[in-house]
Amino acid sequence: QRITLKDYAMRFGQTKTAKDLGVYQSAINKAIHAGRKIFLTINADGSVYAEEVKDGEVKPFPS
């Protein structure tokens, strides 16, 4: 399943989102408010992988 960072954070909370991605909650808040195009893939085992689309390139998040 693929979902935006904002939607994932709204569904699970910023604290869990940060923990799942290995970053601080403040980084999640800042990324959402900056309007960054970050998409999360939720794997069947429950693990989460995030990618950011920037300038036409897709890069892992966090980099």
Rank of each mutant, 00 (worst) to 15 (best):
V58H: 10
A18L: 02
Q1T: 14
Q1F: 08
N43K: 11
S63R: 12
K37I: 12
A27E: 15
I32D: 01
T4V: 04
T17D: 01
K59Q: 12
A9Y: 12
I32P: 00
A44Q: 11
A31C: 05
Y8W: 03
R2C: 10
L5N: 00
M10H: 13
R11K: 14
S63V: 10
L5F: 01
R36D: 06
M10Q: 15
P60L: 07
V58G: 05
E52S: 03
K37R: 11
G46F: 06
F61E: 02
N29T: 14
K30I: 12
D7L: 05
A31R: 01
K30S: 14
K6A: 14
Y24D: 15
S26W: 11
K54R: 12
Y49C: 11
N29W: 12
N29L: 12
E51S: 06
D7N: 05
F39H: 05
I3P: 03
K30A: 14
S47K: 15
T17V: 07
I32T: 02
G22K: 08
N43R: 12
E51P: 01
G56W: 06
F12V: 07
D7S: 05
G56C: 07
D45F: 05
N29E: 15
S26M: 09
A44G: 11
S47E: 08
Y24R: 15
L40C: 09
A9L: 14
K30D: 15
E52N: 01
D45C: 05
I38Q: 00
K37M: 12
K16W: 02
L40I: 15
K19A: 13
E57L: 13
G46N: 06
Q14V: 15
D45E: 06
T4K: 08
Q25M: 09
D7W: 05
D55C: 10
P60G: 06
D55W: 10
Y8D: 01
K37H: 14
K54E: 13
I38V: 09
R11L: 15
K6T: 09
T15A: 14
K30P: 04
K16H: 05
G46M: 06
G13P: 01
L21S: 02
A31N: 02
E57P: 03
K37L: 14
K30V: 10
S47P: 03
P60R: 11
V58K: 09
F12P: 00
A34H: 11
D20Y: 04
S26I: 10
Q14C: 14
R11P: 00
L5D: 00
Q14G: 09
T41H: 07
S26L: 07
A31D: 02
S26P: 10
A50Y: 02
P60A: 08
D20E: 07
T17C: 07
Y24M: 15
G22C: 08
G35M: 10
T41A: 06
Q1W: 05
D45W: 05
K6N: 09
Q1G: 10
V23F: 04
T15S: 13
F61Q: 02
M10I: 14
Q1M: 13
N43D: 09
